[in-house]
Write a protein that binds this DNA or RNA. Structure first.
Lengths: 205, 205
DNA sequence: TATAGTACTTAACAGTGTTAAGTACTTCGT
DNA sequence: ACGAAGTACTTAACACTGTTAAGTACTATA
């Protein structure tokens, strides 16, 4: 009985591992239940024993992605840093995550939610942790006088969406070929920071 | 013969009209060749007489979208306006277009190009006109001393991608429910403009 | 009137997600 | 020890998808 349960979870894990591997190596739109099954060594319908449907399997992968980005961020920001430093680290970490993990980024942020099952509420809360950390950072910067902010939550979403736009533009190859990618990224980050520190940097006043 | 040619183009137009209508009313991912054919009154394979494949048909619709947004922009900006006015108009027009035409926006900016046939070079040039106009506006603002810009082309892409991020965030319902949509949009636009006018507005210097 | 070309259709292929039904096998209660 | 129940899986099937090959009327031309 105990052995059975372990074996059961073995197939589940195998399906998840295969899916993750295939997602990264072949891309989201080559991810099919039958292909996963073939690779995982079971029939396509067996997947449904462990995941309600394809979306549920995808949600599990999306979860992994959010766990990745959360631990990346957590490992890089620090209460000891000045808010402006944490802000820049947040921006660059997010961008780097997107560019390093385009397939994860796609399922996490590019899949049209309208076409998918609703992302479970509990997972959703986890998914929004990074933007909460960003809002906290902004609030702290505002309190300590580094930033000029009206509403940290709104501002955090503005910044987050701006970074998202930059990442997708790069991933989709929509940046003019004349533009150096690093220059573009630096410009985006600079733009974000400028928007918060207006009139606060040394300008001879 | 002349009559035939007209009739021929009639079916092509009917397919295109049906596709556009179905795209807007049912969404991109409910757009199938068989459904279009059924609605247009022909067989699915007849579509292939006028469009190389589904992507080519989609490209035609995407083209329409870029024509729409281009004429929207052209109708709203003016050489007589101050660059800052044109900039804000550009931003708000683009955002409004995205929110008013989510299905067009999806096929124009959200479809992963990797999964599609290459967008024809000539069309691509037309598609990039809005961002060129934006770059021109920035350059003009820089020349006349309104903006502080390093590279107008880079800056235009930064702004464009930032707006894109904002639009997709709204369309994908990724904006926190506590945030008022108009507040968010205003914040985004303000953020864009701030990034260009740093140290130039009246600040008591 | 036969030929060539136009404008279309039907049938089929290979793939998709998903469900219903069936099959071994294992464990449990009597 | 034996039938019942439950587990872990599979096969077959449905209703779709984009796309191609082959076939069918019809029409204009030589």
């Amino acid at each position: 009985m105990a052995v059975q349960l372990i074996k059961k979870q073995d197939l589940r894990r195998s399906i998840l591992d295969t899916s993750r591997h295939m997602l990264v190596s072949e891309g989201f739109n080559h991810l099919s239940m039958r292909k996963i099954a073939r690779e995982a060594g079971c029939s396509a319908t067996s997947i449904y024993l462990y995941f309600r449907n394809k979306d549920a399997l995808l949600h599990a992968l999306i979860d992994e992605g959010f766990e990745m980005i959360f631990s990346l961020i957590k490992g890089k920001i620090s209460e000891d840093n000045r808010p402006a430093v944490n802000l820049e680290v947040l921006c660059r970490t997010f961008i780097k995550f997107g560019l390093d993990n385009p397939e994860y980024y796609e399922i996490m942020f590019l899949l049209h939610p309208k076409n998918m099952d609703r992302y479970p509420a509990e997972n959703f809360r986890r998914a929004t942790r990074p933007v909460s950390i960003l809002a906290d950072t902004l609030l702290q910067g505002e309190k300590t006088g580094y930033f000029t902010i009206q509403d940290p939550v709104v501002e955090a979403h503005v910044i987050w969406s701006s970074l998202h736009g930059a990442i997708t533009a790069i991933l989709a190859n929509r940046i003019d070929v004349r533009i150096n990618q690093q220059d573009f990224i630096d410009s985006v980050v600079q733009h974000v920071i400028r928007g918060l520190t207006r009139g606060r940097e040394k300008n001879g006043c």
